[in-house]
């Protein structure tokens, strides 16, 4: 009944008598990228935080490879499951890029050891995001795009089977947004299981294997990109979508801007 990967089974998250998530079932396997879309306040971030183990379902359960997530110790969880909301992260003053990427190795060391700025995997992660020249720069002196690459390098260094990202492209210019999504897509292709919360529907269709629409705390649909019902998607988001095909993939444009 409950398969591999991260599986949410008939979970509810309630605060008081208000259900933030209601009867949600979702699965994230390795080697796939799912995009979670929906209106503001629909429960996307709550769903992602539930998958990360930050929230306890009030009913139902969340399992990682068959084991309840809450039964997995913080350290092991952090070695298997990465989570980041880059837009919400501060850039603490004075730390270098190498130090911050090193923090992402925290769970790989005993808790009292300094984080792994000197690890080989940190050097690899910095190199793989083309940050080598910036490694000794202070994080708070970088541009938004550079800082985004630092966070992604951190997720490389953390080296987890699953990665959860909340709005990884907000605040980014198109160049950096596309660059980030390509990196994230490459992780899934290489075997990691990736879930991202995205507002850009076209980008979601472009990079994801599956689209999950959250509406009013429920999962409205969870479909492979090829089978996404665009009319329902548009209706639930309150916009009209025009379908196009680009590089052999289904893509969408939002209608209603421009023209009469």
């Amino acid at each position: 009944m409950i398969g591999p990967g991260i599986a949410i089974h008939r979970a509810w998250v309630t605060v008081g008598d208000r259900a933030l998530l209601a009867d949600v079932t979702l699965q994230l396997r390795q080697r796939e990228l799912i995009a979670i879309v929906g209106r503001n306040g629909a429960g996307k971030s709550t769903l992602l935080r539930l998958m990360a183990g930050f929230l306890e379902p009030s009913r139902g359960e969340v399992v990682l490879e068959g084991r309840p997530l809450r039964a997995i110790a913080a350290g092991e969880r952090a070695r298997r499951l990465g989570f980041l909301a880059p837009a919400r992260l501060p850039s603490p003053a004075g730390y270098t890029v190498r130090q911050v990427v090193g923090w992402m190795r925290f769970a790989h060391h005993s808790w009292w050891r300094a984080t792994g700025a000197d690890d080989a995997s940190v050097a690899y992660a910095i190199a793989s995001l083309e940050l080598t020249g910036l490694a000794e720069r202070r994080l708070d002196t970088l541009s938004d795009g550079e800082r985004q690459r630092v966070w992604l390098a951190g997720l490389v260094a953390q080296d987890t089977e699953f990665v959860l990202l909340d709005e990884p492209t907000s605040h980014l210019d198109p160049t950096h947004a596309i660059e980030s999504l390509r990196t994230i897509r490459s992780w899934a292709t290489a075997g990691r299981g990736v879930a991202i919360v995205l507002h850009d529907l076209d980008a979601a269709l472009a990079v994801a294997d599956r689209i999950v629409l959250v509406d009013g705390g429920r999962i409205a649909f969870d479909e492979p990109v090829a089978r996404v019902p665009l009319d329902e998607l548009g209706r639930r988001l309150g916009i009209r979508l025009a379908e196009i095909t680009l590089d052999g993939r289904r893509r969408v444009l939002a209608q209603g801007l421009g023209g009469a």
């Binding site: 935080r49 990360a52 930050f54 913080a74 350290g75 969880r77 952090a78 070695r79 499951l81 990465g82 989570f83 980041l84 909301a85 919400r88 992260l89 501060p90 603490p92 730390y95 130090q99 923090w103 992402m104 925290f106 769970a107 060391h109 808790w111 009292w112 050891r113 300094a114 984080t115 953390q158």
Partner: peptide, 22 residues
């Protein structure tokens, strides 16, 4: 001994938690 944990707390609490910090 808590030094590395204090470094992580310079991020937000979710991020620190996701990195394995209690």
């Amino acid at each position: 001994a808590l030094g590395p944990s204090l470094d992580l707390l310079q991020l937000d609490e979710d991020a620190a938690k996701a990195l394995g910090l209690r």
